[in-house]
Amino acid sequence: MEKKVQQYYKLKAKQKELEKELAGLRQEILAHINEAGQTEAVFGSYKVKLVTQNRKEYDDDKLYQTLSDPELWRLLSRADPAKVASLTKLKVIAEEKIAHTYDVKTIQLLQVDKQ
Rank of each mutant, 00 (worst) to 15 (best):
Y9N: 05
Y9H: 10
K10D: 12
K10E: 12
L11E: 05
K12P: 04
K12I: 07
A13K: 15
K14L: 15
Q15R: 11
Q15T: 08
K16Q: 12
E17L: 15
E17I: 14
L18K: 08
L18M: 09
E19V: 08
K20A: 13
A23Q: 15
G24R: 00
G24V: 00
G24Y: 00
Q27E: 14
Q27C: 00
E28S: 04
I29L: 12
L30Y: 01
L30S: 02
A31I: 06
A31Q: 12
H32D: 11
I33Y: 11
I33G: 01
N34C: 12
E35P: 04
A36H: 07
A36I: 03
A36K: 14
G37M: 07
G37Y: 05
G37H: 07
Q38W: 03
Q38P: 05
Q38Y: 08
Q38V: 01
T39S: 10
V42Y: 08
V42M: 12
F43M: 11
G44V: 07
S45M: 00
Y46T: 00
K47P: 00
K47E: 03
K47C: 04
V48D: 07
V48E: 06
V48Y: 15
V48P: 09
K49G: 03
L50T: 04
T52W: 04
T52F: 07
T52P: 00
T52A: 14
N54Q: 14
N54V: 12
N54Y: 12
R55D: 08
R55A: 01
K56H: 07
K56F: 04
K56R: 14
K56Y: 06
E57K: 11
E57F: 05
Y58C: 00
D59E: 09
K62T: 05
Y64E: 13
Y64R: 15
Q65K: 12
L67P: 06
D69Q: 13
D69P: 14
D69C: 09
P70V: 15
P70F: 11
E71N: 07
W73Y: 05
R74K: 11
R74P: 00
R74T: 06
L75P: 01
L76T: 06
L76R: 11
L76K: 09
A79P: 01
D80R: 11
K83Q: 14
A85C: 06
S86L: 13
S86I: 12
S86W: 08
L87G: 08
L87H: 05
T88P: 03
K89S: 08
K89M: 02
K89I: 03
L90M: 09
L90V: 06
K91P: 01
V92G: 02
I93R: 02
I93H: 03
A94K: 14
A94L: 10
A94H: 10
E95Q: 14
E95F: 12
E95T: 06
E96W: 12
E96K: 15
I98W: 05
A99R: 13
A99D: 12
T101E: 01
T101W: 04
Y102T: 13
D103C: 03
D103W: 02
D103K: 13
D103E: 14
V104N: 04
K105N: 08
T106F: 01
